[in-house]
Design a protein around this nucleic acid. Sequence first.
DNA 1: TTACTCGCTAACCTTTAGGTAACGACTAAC
DNA 2: GTTAGTCGTTACCTAAAGGTTAGCGAGTAA
Lengths: 132, 132
Amino acid sequence: MKEQNETEKSTKEFSEDCHKLLSSVSDALYAIGGKWKLMIIIAMARGNNRFTELQRMVNGISARVLSSELKELEMNGFIVKKVSVGYPVTIEYQLLPYSETLQEVVGALSRWGVQHREKIKNDMSKEGSSKP
Amino acid sequence: MKEQNETEKSTKEFSEDCHKLLSSVSDALYAIGGKWKLMIIIAMARGNNRFTELQRMVNGISARVLSSELKELEMNGFIVKKVSVGYPVTIEYQLLPYSETLQEVVGALSRWGVQHREKIKNDMSKEGSSKP
DNA sequence: TTACTCGCTAACCTTTAGGTAACGACTAAC
DNA sequence: GTTAGTCGTTACCTAAAGGTTAGCGAGTAA
């Protein structure tokens, strides 16, 4: 029964594999999915720690959305909000070490993004020049 | 003027870097962002090529959403729809080579997802056991 | 005094994602 | 021939993400 053929076995294994892969990717997307979270983390990793800095750097984000995303990022342990009580109360957001675990993801995504833009450009110029 | 100090220079470079990174990640998210696209590609890479197979494999997706996501994936050159005209018309979706460029992204995301789930589990057990 | 910045927040509205349910066309079983 | 299942597609509707505008409280600069 067990060594009947390989089709059945590999199908099953594939299917288990697949479920694991799917659920881990799903977990990841749950935490860092959406339009902004990764972008905010990238901007912060580049030294943007103030609210308005972030708003200017992350193109197209509104104050309302930035505010709520920062809250979520804080709840999930990616960043902290530091309020310096001294002279003019300044508020800074800082990355926590945990956000560094995202480096690989950010790297992969940005490399893919670069090559994808290239591809789109090529596709367009091909279509454009294919007029008979 | 040029070697005044390093602070100014590196700030500027950081900022340029940052914009590039942000726009490439943004491009990537535009194409493969959202809850389902990557999951569908993963499922297909594991040998699920029929509509209902995919629907069963990708947990929680509805037929309507699957149908529209498949259309988008086709438009963006990740998959093709093959209709065999013979006997009971069967429809198969197949990955195109371009979807393989996503391997790195999928790998990174799933590894991160796995460790993130671990982290959540640990965090919870810590909080749970800290009752005085 | 006026005006402008920073770090938000609330109220309101639009856009998009996604669920439900039903259909068409065809098969298979009862 | 009637019911049930496959393989999708479509129309309709809700929910939630996100944009816009406005403003507040505290500081700063003219």
